[in-house]
Design a protein around this nucleic acid. Structure first.
Lengths: 219, 219
DNA sequence: TCTTTTCTGTTGCAAAAACAACCGATTTGT
DNA sequence: ACAAATCGGTTGTTTTTGCAACAGAAAAGA
């Protein structure tokens, strides 16, 4: 468990917390490590969570498959990010989506109650972690609103432009690498893959964008 | 200002805080009241917030109009709910949407830094407010994910069913009243009003639902 | 290395949505 | 009470999407 301290230090939850404090908090917060193979489910829709999940390696998707096999990718969790903050509240109900490892992944679970309830004794940095948690959920909130901005556009082209421009802004460059393949991007933007692929090529032919694999450039 | 204490007591931010404590915190948190006429903007996209907004009367929409006049209603703020929690973090950037009063409304602004930074002295209930804030943002997060669930459905009919069923579940009855008129519902679900109206009537003719104005019944 | 699977682009067709225009009913404001 | 504005439903046309099927390229696995 100790070996994860340098990695945890870089996560949003433990930003600004000293190494030795993280070590102390690992037991204080009842941390448990687990690895998942690509494709395995970390959580399933309908479960009741009592832990917060920190991703230390790999990649997770928050997604939902409907009865007919249509998939919606709600969000993506990258290394250092966390999941389950929104279910920390006591009466937060069942999990709305599945959480799936899209790469071989390693996560650390922390007991949610022990994070929320500031312990009296040892953990001097506990309040820092609580604040980090608050900022993390706050940031995720804004991410979700941005996503709503993308998918509420009426046409596939507009959705693509909305998503790609925001990603370009975030990466601070007109040239950008997206973390999705075509099918995943379509599932993320809630459109049909083939129609989207078609639209991307039209946009390229019109000189709006260039792309190769998941590297894009806005012109 | 004192007269708002009974109302504030019922808001998500001050749940569980005693009257006299709220009174004390009003000055501690630098509370300011303001009223808005129907249609007025409370905040505009691009602004940088430094306050949290509690709605004590009326109704707000979080929305965005694009260049061609298409409106997207991202969320709705009802009496007792708050706005701006997601912008409490120092580096949270500019406001992504407009905040508009859809009815004559009264809001109270609280200095965001004073909420986050727990004051040393008087406010015994301050930590309760911080926790309330956390739960509020947490709940909003889940609301946003639900909304993504609705609008990521592929057809207008599916969007309507998704929205109406969730609302029925929330109101715990197959008969429900929605807080939108037709245009607003269309803007909320990101579809065309006339197409949606059409679809609603088809669903009624097929015996799936009944409705009159904004009262619906699922069959 | 060879086979199998996944990924991406392409096409045609059917279904659905957006758009525009209109009308009667209801609501709002004076 | 009356005029004006808003609201909800209807229809027809155009545009866009979803869907299915296929093929070459790339990647993964044996």
């Amino acid at each position: 468990m100790k070996k994860y301290i340098p990695i945890l230090k870089k996560t949003k939850l433990f930003a600004g917390v000293a190494d030795e404090e993280i070590g102390a908090m690992l037991s204080c917060l009842d941390a448990r490590v687990r690895t998942y193979k690509k494709g395995e489910y970390v959580h399933r829709q309908g479960e009741h969570l009592n832990s917060i999940t920190v991703l230390v390696d790999g990649e997770l998707h928050i997604q939902r498959d409907d009865y007919w096999g249509n998939r919606t990718i709600v969000n993506r969790i990258a290394i250092g990010e966390l999941f389950g903050e929104a279910y920390a509240a006591p009466e937060s109900g069942a999990l709305l989506n599945d959480v799936v490892a899209v790469e071989d992944s390693t996560v650390i679970f922390f007991d949610v109650r022990r994070i929320i309830t500031v312990c009296s004794s040892a953990c001097r940095f506990h309040s820092m972690v609580v604040q980090n948690l608050f900022f993390a959920i706050s940031e995720k909130n804004r991410t979700l609103v941005q996503k709503i901005g993308h998918i509420s556009k009426r046409t596939t082209r507009e959705k693509l432009i909305s998503y790609l421009s925001e990603e370009a802004k975030r990466q601070n460059s007109a040239s950008l690498i997206i973390p999705f393949n075509r099918q995943q991007l379509a599932d993320f933007l809630s459109v049909d893959r083939s129609a989207m692929s078609n639209e991307l090529c039209k946009m390229r032919d019109e000189g709006l964008i260039e792309f190769e694999k998941n590297q894009f450039r806005l012109l």
